Simulated scan of single mutants.
Amino acid sequence: MSASTDLGTLTDFFDRYGVALTAGDLPALAGCYALPGLVVSDTYSFAFSTPAAVTLSFVGAAPDYQERELIAAHALIEDVQQVSALLTMVAVEWEFLDSSGGRVPGERYRYLLRATETGPLICTVVRVG
């Protein structure tokens, strides 16, 4: 097993993540994370060590997406760097689609992914820009 820099594998992973995000599928979102994990931004950081903690961190996201009428999320992979044998850093800009078919620019993140037997999992999320 080794860190994936294959764009097909990474695109599939972020496609599943984006579907779970906009659908509010909290168990599927939690399943995208390695434990323990970390989220970092300019104003806060938090760690989580259980699927329930990951789920709680996304509870407010689904209503926000519904209120903004965002129906799909697409990860534009900007950069991929193999960090170690099992870790890959992926720079992503999220682009959303609203209910009228319009594109809505999203935010940029860096995801540190760990290779596992079942595919990549998110270890750390850093909000950038």
Rank of each mutant, 00 (worst) to 15 (best):
D12G: 01
V40S: 09
L29T: 02
A73L: 02
F58Y: 14
L76Y: 08
S41R: 01
V125P: 01
E78K: 15
E69L: 09
F58H: 13
S100R: 15
L7S: 10
T88Y: 03
D42T: 13
R16L: 04
I122V: 14
Y109A: 06
F13L: 11
A75Q: 08
T116G: 10
V92N: 01
F14Q: 00
G119F: 05
C123K: 14
L35R: 12
R103E: 09
P63D: 04
E107S: 12
D12Q: 07
A3K: 03
I122W: 09
V104T: 12
T124N: 12
E69Y: 00
V125N: 05
M89R: 15
G8Y: 00
V39Q: 09
D79Y: 02
L121I: 02
G60D: 15
G129I: 07
A28E: 03
A53S: 09
D79N: 14
V59G: 11
R127D: 08
A34E: 02
H74M: 09
D79T: 07
H74Y: 05
F46C: 02
G31D: 11
A20Q: 07
D64F: 00
G129P: 08
A72L: 03
A61M: 09
P105G: 07
A91M: 08
L113N: 10
A75N: 09
P120T: 15
T11D: 15
A30N: 05
Y44P: 03
R114P: 04
E93M: 07
G119A: 01
I77W: 03
E69G: 07
T116Q: 03
G37A: 12
G8T: 00
Y65F: 15
R127M: 04
L38H: 15
G18A: 04
L56V: 09
T116N: 08
A75C: 08
P51I: 06
I122D: 11
E117G: 05
D6G: 05
A53I: 02
G129Q: 13
G8A: 10
T5M: 08
F58M: 05
A53F: 00
S49C: 02
V92Q: 01
Q66R: 15
V19I: 12
E107G: 07
A30I: 06
D98K: 06
R110W: 00
D15K: 14
Y33A: 08
M89C: 13
A34V: 02
D98S: 07
T88K: 10
A85W: 01
A115N: 06
R103K: 12
W94R: 08
R68L: 10
Q81G: 02
S2Y: 10
F96K: 00
A20S: 09
L10Q: 07
A61S: 11
G8Q: 12
Y44V: 06
A34N: 03
E93P: 03
